[in-house]
Nucleic acid binder design. Structure first.
Lengths: 347, 347
DNA sequence: TTGTAGGCGTTATCAC
DNA sequence: GTGATAACGCCTACAA
């Protein structure tokens, strides 16, 4: 009050471990032991120091910890996924797991096509001394990233459409089963001329989903001419194009399974442009349960995989040591068929 | 080769400023000066040290810098925006600006309704010693966040639908003008019975867009009964509900302006459910140019604001000092009308 | 223009 | 069990 204060603005939050040690009447190392939950401490001492910490409102300085430990309390999210909703769901899941912990999430998109991609990734995890990373599909399928993590002493968990790694480093959905169930549903309704809009080659999810589709048809004794498979790139426009190719088939398919919702939306778009009624003339099933699926007309029947839950488990696996809170996190997640208006019986 | 190496894994990336100093034959302070681009250095010395740095592939340790400087090289993205595509566009813009810099992006959603929101925010920027934050709408409208940033010595730039702060701390779109243009378009086509699906109260963007709508109607001498305004919450479902209320009006509106695309999609959904043809019976314009707008049938005419560009400028303002590279970044961004298939002449 | 000493806040080492 | 002392890698202040 009157003139600039000579006291640095450390009224709160700028307490150091020394302040705690002084008030508690112990050495800073003892405080450090309390913070790091080390075992060989007299219970009485621990409780006393914890009381002082709570009273003062002290929190350790992350920068100093990072320097001393050679490791930051940051979890990286590495992705090259073009689907905004998917990425946001993953972020939400990770942040939910990290809530009320000392960890923060740092996001890094990677360009799968770039020749410097691996170097960028290594620099990223090494320079930031990341505690761990969550690898999103499809780039999680690249084994080199996992290897670089190991070399850098950076923990990792991969997300994928099938198991690509050991359970403690993996959360997987069962895309193949999900698609098989969806295809069985179409077959059960009486469809026999069922076409596929496949995902791009080189994507494991595309392969898994396609296999589920082919297995279902095979088990039912239904043939699948190669012309009944149109490949897309998971984007809306490719769904339009793929559907147009499929509509030219003679006889025309009565149903289409699309390897994701965005392409399914494109297919419905194309159907409407040709005067085809969905589901009257054509049934469509997608994959993902992207919001677009619920908002299209008709709402699209789809296969839902629990993205946020998987990401949450991934982050928990990263943060908690084995045999601790996060140890029992599942590594396999089931998808479910969501029945909406885009499927009917064949005419 | 044969037995564990006693040498710590510091083959690369683990070089310190001391290594550089030794090889260059200078003191570490001199190296530090080169790193921090300080001026009072002999050009010859600088070049020599830069050469050694490049040769060694040395990069400064961010943790140590953060500790010494009391400031991290992290840019926070703070948001409470429910629209996945919007958030992803902002992330993309920020990361583009941060590419090839030493900065990383750290993401923190905030719950506008939580009583501890401000405390969480303060803890976040203080504990992490953030270099700066980008505040996304609608939470960017909260002046308290800006104040807390100032107190913590954390730079900030706010994104918004109108100027809320000084130009160096603000990137704004001109929503009001954008909506006015869109509404004029409808009027020019002959529409006179034009209804509004408004955004939620308390959102500045909702207010700006509504004002633009009302101004356009007012300038054209068209009345706007209060029953012709239906409020939504920016989500799809509320667009459906709002449209249903509007369809009950007698006479029915021939056009609807919706304050965002998601609600516009809901309105089209509702129209189809009632057997109304778009644009035959009803014209619809949205706002955002969300992907859903292009993918709906018919594709939705909308107002596009340059989200990623704004976010990129915001990050550049944060990172670069005045009168430097990022100083001339604009703080006002224009929206544009994207004409698609959801608008026609009134019947 | 450059170098030396000391500090940032924490953890590791090794005595006691 | 607990405490001095030395790192961790960089930057600031001040001296040369």
């Amino acid at each position: 009050m009157g003139g600039p204060s000579p006291v640095p603005a450390r009224s709160r939050g700028n307490l150091t471990i020394n302040d705690v040690a002084r008030v508690a009447g112990v050495s800073k190392k003892t405080v450090s032991r309390v913070i790091n939950r080390e075992t060989q401490l007299k219970a009485r001492t621990r409780e006393h120091v914890e009381g002082v910490i709570a009273m003062l409102g002290y929190t350790p300085n992350p920068q100093a910890r990072a320097l001393a430990l050679g490791r930051n309390f940051l979890i990286g999210l590495v992705h090259d996924n073009p689907n905004a909703q998917t990425v946001m769901s993953v972020q939400q899941g990770i942040l939910e797991a990290l809530r009320d912990t000392e960890f923060e999430m740092i996001v890094r998109p990677l360009d799968r096509g770039s020749p410097t991609m691996l170097d960028e990734f290594r620099d990223f995890i090494e320079r930031q001394r990341l505690f761990g990373v969550v690898l999103m599909p499809p780039i999680s399928e690249n084994d080199m990233l996992a290897r670089l993590c190991e070399e850098a002493g950076c923990r990792y968990v991969r997300m994928g459409s099938t198991a690509l790694d050991t359970p403690d480093r993996m959360v997987a959905s069962n895309d193949r089963e999900g698609v098989r169930t969806a295809t069985d549903y179409l077959i059960g309704l009486g469809h026999r001329r069922i076409a596929l809009i496949a995902g791009p080659q080189g994507f494991r999810s595309a392969r898994e989903r396609r296999m589920g589709f082919e297995q279902a048809l095979g088990d039912a004794g239904i043939a699948l001419p190669s012309s009944w498979v149109a490949e897309g790139d998971y984007l809306f426009g490719s769904g339009v194009a793929a559907a147009e190719r499929l509509f030219a088939l003679e006889p025309r398919p009565t149903a289409i399974f699309s390897c994701n919702d965005e392409m399914a939306a494109g297919a419905i778009h194309a159907a409407r442009a040709q005067g085809l009624d969905v589901p009257g003339d054509l049934s469509v099933i997608g994959f993902d349960d992207n919001p677009i699926a619920a908002h299209m007309w008709p709402p699209i029947t789809t296969v839902r995989w629990p993205i946020a839950s998987m990401a949450r488990s991934a982050a928990l696996k990263l943060v908690f040591e084995r045999s601790q809170d996060g140890a029992d996190e599942p590594s396999l997640f089931l998808s479910t068929l969501i029945r909406r208006g885009s499927v009917g019986t064949p005419r």
